[in-house]
């Protein structure tokens, strides 16, 4: 076969090997039947096929229908992310899979942050918490536990600042996400 100029003749699907597809982050909302083992099916599909889970949040959201809503933050190249969507959709107890990164959406996570410090450190922790909208939910004379809710990046920044002051430990949920506007899933 004569060599062709890829762009002129056919759109070849095989990208130039020197061109690297950058991984991106994507958030999926998955509506599933809340039956035993459903989380194992989702998590097992990710591990079995070698995909990443950055965070996963799950809770029953419609009790009368036994429906759970799972928010999964994952990363990969576009081809991998599309394949993840198709593989999720293929699982029998999955009702819907929605790519929330493709639309305006809100993502929030919650963290409980324990900080130890006295004197000026303690005051500074409180000031920063106020700036971030974090609420003290426990206090001793030498420590605070703050509750912060926000986008992952904000939570991350708050934790970084607390590290400088005297971070003891953090407990964090994964992201919960919802699309903006009046429409439901």
């Amino acid at each position: 076969m004569t060599p062709r100029n890829r762009n002129e003749t056919m759109k070849s699907h095989y990208t130039d090997p020197t061109e690297i597809q950058l991984p991106e982050r994507r958030t999926y909302c998955v509506l599933v039947d809340n039956e035993p083992g459903v989380l194992a099916r989702i998590a097992g599909m990710f591990s079995g096929r070698g995909y990443n889970i950055e965070s996963l949040t799950v809770s029953e959201t419609e009790h009368e229908k036994h429906l759970s809503r799972i928010t999964i933050v994952t990363s990969g190249t576009k081809a991998v992310l599309d394949q993840i969507e198709a593989q999720l959709d293929r699982l029998v107890p999955v009702h819907r899979v929605v790519n929330l990164s493709a639309k305006p959406a809100i993502e929030r996570e919650l963290a409980l942050v324990k900080v130890r410090g006295t004197g000026e450190h303690r005051m500074e922790a409180l000031r920063l918490a106020t700036a971030f909208g974090a609420r003290p939910v426990d206090a001793t004379l030498e420590s605070f536990v703050f509750e912060i809710t926000g986008a992952s990046e904000d939570v991350e920044r708050f934790i970084n600042l607390m590290t400088a002051i005297g971070l003891v430990e953090v407990s964090r949920t994964g992201a919960a996400a919802i699309a903006r506007g009046s429409e439901g899933l």
Partner: peptide, 21 residues
């Protein structure tokens, strides 16, 4: 390398899994 590809499959995850069509 030089073909346009049509893929009929009952499983949506088979489409564009290994080869982009």
């Amino acid at each position: 390398p030089g073909s346009r590809k049509i893929h009929v499959d009952i499983d949506p995850s088979s489409i564009n899994k290994n080869v982009k069509v």
